[in-house]
Amino acid sequence: MILTDNGKCFKNALELEYTKNGSPRTKIFYCDPQASWQKPHIEKNHEYIRYVIPRGKTFKGYTQEDMTLITNHINSTIRAGLNYKSPYDLVETEDMKKLLEVLNMSPVAADEVCLSPKLLRK
């Protein structure tokens, strides 16, 4: 899943959501128009992604496992705007816990969170 702003790099949603042979690979969700309060949260996640995959470097060659690893580290990052909790700390319902399990998403210990290119070095 990709949550994004309405920037030009995300205008061709179908090309991003489906492979060349038509298989689904992701879903793209956009901020609501005139909802400026949504964008800062998205931009912070983009910033975190770029800590791991620097701007100008292609996403080609990364696997779903790589993206899940990045997501796990980002969602384990404590944030002042969340009362010094991580997004994972805010998961309360059993349905959300099951969804995270199905998606192979799980918290990373705070002292093990890595938001740098070292995270994906193999």
Rank of each mutant, 00 (worst) to 15 (best):
T71W: 01
A13F: 05
K60V: 02
V91Q: 11
L16S: 00
K60W: 06
M96Y: 14
H41G: 11
L3I: 04
E47P: 08
E17W: 02
S106Y: 07
K8F: 08
L115P: 08
Y51V: 12
I74A: 02
E43M: 04
N72K: 02
I70H: 00
D32M: 11
N21C: 12
L120M: 02
Q64T: 15
H41I: 03
L90I: 08
P40A: 00
M96W: 14
P54W: 03
Y88L: 13
S23T: 03
N83F: 14
I28K: 06
P40Q: 01
E92Q: 12
K39A: 09
T19E: 07
T77A: 10
R50L: 15
Y84G: 04
E43I: 09
Q38I: 05
G61S: 08
T68F: 05
E65I: 01
D66M: 00
K98C: 05
L103K: 05
L90Y: 15
A80H: 10
T71C: 02
M105I: 08
C31R: 07
D66C: 01
I74G: 06
H73L: 10
L103I: 03
I42H: 08
T93V: 13
Y18C: 14
E101D: 09
A35M: 11
K118R: 05
K97E: 14
Q38P: 02
E92I: 11
D89C: 15
Y48V: 04
I2R: 01
M67T: 06
C9A: 14
N75V: 10
K122D: 02
E15F: 13
I2T: 00
T4K: 00
A109W: 14
L99W: 13
C31M: 07
H46N: 06
Y48C: 08
G81L: 11
Y18N: 03
K11R: 12
W37A: 00
R79W: 07
P40N: 01
G7M: 11
E47W: 13
G7S: 02
T58H: 10
L14M: 09
N72Y: 04
A13H: 12
Y62D: 02
L82A: 06
A80D: 13
V108T: 08
R50W: 15
K11C: 10
K44A: 04
L100V: 12
P33Y: 03
I78N: 07
K122V: 04
N12H: 15
N83D: 14
S23G: 13
S36E: 09
Y84N: 13
M105H: 03
Q34F: 09
N45R: 07
H73T: 06
Y30T: 07
T58E: 07
M105Y: 03
Q38E: 13
K122W: 02
L82Q: 07
Y18S: 01
V52G: 00
G56W: 02
K98E: 07
K57V: 12
K8V: 03
D89G: 14
F10E: 15
L99F: 09
N104S: 09
L69D: 09
H46G: 01
S76L: 06
L3M: 06
L100W: 08
D111H: 13
E47D: 12
D32C: 08
F29V: 10
L3A: 00
E17A: 01
F59E: 10
A13Y: 11
P107W: 13
N45E: 14
L119V: 11
C31H: 04
